[in-house]
Amino acid sequence: MIDLIAKSAAEGLLPVTIGTMTLTELPLREMHSIAPFKGAEVSAALKKATGVGLPDTGRAIAKVDVEILWTARGQYVLIGATPPKLPAAITDQSDAWCSVVLSGEGAPQVMARVCPLDLGRMGEGDVARSFVGHMTAIIIKRAEGFEIMVFRAFAKTLVHELREVMVSVTAQATLPD
């Protein structure tokens, strides 16, 4: 019997701490995208089965271990639970994403250099689709900093891009005025 070894997307690359900032990877969790059919009522059935309904545009809802994110127009991502049968296009995306958290005092400065969003406007639990470097990403504002999700194949590039900026921001902070 072959014994497969589970490997996270950024295995061996994270965590890293540079200056006041830390970049850590979040553990892989079950994940499904949900795109409700036109005019279909999905929220109530989803809430009954998983504890979370569909969030408003640009928001996330979390309850215990289950979270649901708005990720595009008419598209949501359910994390940590299996969706019931719904009038929606549902795709299993477990293992397809890499999720990292950038925290620490300099985190907003790092994000400002790689992401075109106006991050100062984002409050806890706000979700946005945008770029990190040249990668499309899901960005979620958390209490401790920013959670960034990219396609799994971009994990190494994401770590590289953020690491370079973390080094640069730290170096500039230590320069005399």
């Binding site: 545009t57 640009g58 127009r73 075109p116 969003l117 406007r121 946005a128 945008s130 770029f131």
Partner: peptide
């Protein structure tokens, strides 16, 4: 109209 004011490179 959905996301708000965004940079041109996203489009």
């Amino acid at each position: 109209p959905i996301c708000g004011d965004r940079d041109r490179r996203e489009f």
